[in-house]
Design a protein around this nucleic acid. Structure first.
Lengths: 138, 138
DNA sequence: GGAGCTGTCCTATCGTGCTAGGACGGCGCC
DNA sequence: GGCGCCGTCCTAGCACGATAGGACAGCTCC
């Protein structure tokens, strides 16, 4: 079933390729797709797969190491750090909360009532839980 | 009570100043803060208030005119077009739906269950409807 | 007519982030 | 030892958007 980690980057997406990469790795760890101790794709390999520059991947690997999420073994590769799971869950909760908070603020500024907001949410949440995967990853 | 339209731009925000500007104007119209026929701040005035370049404001004014949201009267100023309300409501619903859709997709990719998603939403929605205005506009 | 405002247009510059391509030292395996 | 892969580093270049500053024509009011 292909690679354990499937990462795709949209160069014209809302956020920068680096951020998309970092976020996807954190999410993969938080969801258990990537377990501590596991090895990540090499900088050059992922660069080919995700159609980004090796420098970009390397930069993200280094950034995530600073966060304590990844662990680099010189000459070998990068691996998921042991304490990564809790860190990534925390980061995930923080990021998702903040994004939802911003969305709610915008929705209210745009004139939607609490009821309209709730209704919209329930409609989309329900649609998603039924359809399962609809594509469109960020 | 100050200017009718209060617009603030965060140069380091998630989206570009142009997009923030355009979105805020559309939202203001959709919510009724800005009514059809009303006049918008001048390019130079808003540039000062929102701390952006006059060129940036002018670019947005022109873009919104192409959308049929604004109407420019040469030598006079720009005004909210007559059909702007419905257009902006449609644009608002589309934008908010799409953003929420992306958020839901990311939340699921990050390993949150439907219940966790719902719980998170209800917690934040409730907090906001109580606190009223918490600032942080995008 | 003249002053003061309006939006528009033009060229140049700057900042940021990704891209391109090459070079280095470290480690595993034969 | 030698080969291949690993992450890292360095210098250039490009793309995009915002910025800076000036110049123009149109409208309004005195």
């Amino acid at each position: 079933m292909g690679p354990k980690l499937s990462i795709s980057v949209d160069p014209k997406g809302d956020s920068t390729p680096s951020e998309q990469l970092a976020s996807q790795v954190r999410f993969a760890i938080a969801s258990g797709v990537l377990a501590p101790g596991e090895r990540l794709p090499s900088v050059r390999q992922l660069a080919v797969d995700a159609l980004v520059n090796p420098n970009t991947v390397g930069k993200v690997w280094r950034e995530l190491e600073r966060e304590g999420v990844l662990e680099t073994r010189p000459g070998d590769g990068v691996f998921v750090a042991s304490g990564a799971l809790s860190r990534c869950r925390a980061a995930r909760d923080l990021e998702l909360s903040e994004r939802l908070r911003v969305w709610l603020a915008d929705a209210r500024r745009a004139g939607l009532s609490s009821d309209q907001v709730t209704e919209l949410f329930e409609r989309l949440a329900r649609a998603r839980s039924v359809t399962q995967r609809t594509g469109g990853q960020r």
